[in-house]
């Protein structure tokens, strides 16, 4: 079967870093409180840049990294699209000069990047396209209740992207296996209640368009499902945890990632993390963490990676891949 390889990677952040100290002036919190519970020291919040804007910047960096100016497909994972209609991906494809390629959005909240990766891998492996630009892009600052310290301190804006290409069978640096899952009975754990057809068809429904999350329940379920999904893809790849060089989990919370490593009986040193600098960037978090792994010199060609994510829905997903030899620039800081 056709193999699928990562050919390029890029990222972008809006150039407005918000520190914990600045948040402490806006709400009842402190640097110590935020760091102790989340591991986050700062995040980037947009002023004038939308999800499409950061997606374009990250996509351009990924295309540059892949030394390509064309792909056959654009899949964009986001919770915060530019508009309820149409999808953000076609505008991103047009702004990148990609011509009349297939382009659509994927909505799986913080698992979105893994879902988008699975979709693009399926398109390539099935022979529908030969290459794809997969983007995770978010501007959570636009949906946060900035008086709610349980969520506002956690999330940041940004985008990460990879270029996937078809390769000959047996190519060593390949995207190996992907596992996806969901449990809609837990949809209340992470949600934006209003703004959709549910609210418009039920007069009594919650009309809030702010993001809400049941933190403790999410913590527990995230650790449980990411561990279970990780073990599934590791078994499919016939890898042991010991054989994995790096675990790149969704950058939800440092303590969630620590508990995940413990549950997998993996050395915590294998966790690649950047949430201390950028916070939880939802669908963008895994490609931004991968980029951090490269630019910090830890992630090298031939390394075995486990990616895993959990998000609203609830949804979860994991992937195994062998990292290729790639050159990449640090995330583009774009004016906002």
């Amino acid at each position: 079967m056709t193999e699928v390889v990562v050919a390029g990677i890029g990222g972008a952040l809006p150039d407005n870093r918000v520190t914990n100290a600045e948040l402490a002036e806006m709400m009842d919190t402190s640097d110590e409180w935020i760091r102790g519970r989340t591991g986050i020291a700062g995040r980037y919040w947009s002023r004038t840049t939308s999800t499409g804007d950061v997606a374009v910047a990250a996509g351009r960096r990924a295309l540059d990294s892949a030394q390509r100016d064309q792909v056959d497909l654009v899949v964009l994972a986001t919770t915060t699209p530019d508009h309820p209609c149409p999808a953000t991906a076609p505008a991103v494809a047009a702004r990148l000069g990609l011509g009349p390629v297939g382009a659509f959005d994927v909505a799986a909240v913080c698992s979105g990047f893994i879902y988008a990766l699975a979709v693009a891998k399926g398109f390539i492996a099935g022979g529908l396209v030969r290459s794809a630009l997969v983007i995770g892009a978010e501007t959570y600052s636009t949906i946060l209740d900035r008086t709610d310290r349980s969520t506002a301190v956690i999330f940041g804006d940004g985008a990460g992207a990879v270029v996937l290409c078809a390769a000959e069978p047996g190519t060593p640096a390949a995207l190996e296996h992907i596992d996806l899952g969901s449990n809609g009975d837990d949809r209340q754990l992470v949600c934006v209640p209003g703004g959709g057809s549910y609210q418009r068809t039920r007069p009594e429904a919650d009309r809030s368009t702010h993001f809400s999350m049941l933190g403790r329940e999410v913590f527990r379920t995230a650790v449980t499902e990411m561990a279970r999904s990780s073990q599934t893809v590791l078994q499919r790849s016939r890898w042991t945890v010991r054989e994995v060089d790096w675990i790149v989990g969704h950058q939800a919370n440092e303590r969630i990632l620590g508990a995940l490593a413990d549950r997998l009986e993996a050395d915590r040193e294998k966790l690649i993390m950047n949430l201390d600098r950028v916070g939880n960037t939802s669908a963008a978090s895994i490609p931004l963490a991968l980029l951090e792994g490269i630019t910090s010199g830890r992630l090298r060609g031939g390394d075995r990676l486990l990616l895993t994510a959990f998000g609203g829905g609830t949804t979860w997903g994991s992937a195994t891949l062998v990292w290729p030899e790639l050159k990449a620039e640090p995330a583009d800081l774009i004016p906002t």
Partner: peptide, 10 residues
């Protein structure tokens, strides 16, 4: 803290 009992349960 608010997360410790979750960690203990896990």
């Amino acid at each position: 803290d608010s997360i410790n009992l979750v960690e203990l349960a896990l």
